[in-house]
């Protein structure tokens, strides 16, 4: 079965969805990402959906689930590159993805993850002092 590749980028994982996903592929991605967060001790997950022409409730729920599971595993999920027409449609569909952080592009998404990591590191340092 096809799989969506997951790249390791520093302490974050990077996923670029470039195909129109059927439901099993979306479910497989959810499982693969969860396993890799644990395997690599990743602190962030960046999902680039700029190639997706639509996000329906199934894919929306997948993004929500990935964000919820990664949060429990102490990693932040940022979804980047959503097309404007997709955003308009998602809201009208009734999915506002409240649990998912978003950024306009990969660069800003990565900055968001790094900023969160620095904050948590400095908090850790404060505790040690």
């Amino acid at each position: 079965m096809d799989r969506i590749p997951i790249l390791k980028f520093g302490n974050a994982l990077l996923v670029t969805i470039q195909v129109d996903m059927h439901d099993r592929l979306a479910t497989a991605l959810e499982e693969d990402l969860t396993a890799k967060i644990v395997a690599y001790g990743a602190r962030g997950v960046l999902i680039d959906i700029s190639a997706l022409e639509i996000v329906d409730s199934f894919i929306g729920r997948m993004l929500d689930n990935i964000a919820a599971v990664s949060r429990i595993l102490d990693a932040d999920t940022v979804v980047v590159g959503m097309r404007p027409a997709v955003a308009i449609t998602l809201v009208e569909l009734g999915l506002s993805l409240t649990g998912v952080k978003t950024a306009l592009n990969v660069e800003r998404g990565m900055a968001l993850i790094q900023a969160r990591l620095q904050t948590s590191e400095s908090e850790d340092a404060d505790v040690e002092d």
Partner: peptide, 17 residues
Amino acid sequence: GLVDQTKIITAASELAR
């Protein structure tokens, strides 16, 4: 147009599923 396309494709996906 692009937004209308996206809307009807998304609706089709929901109804087909």
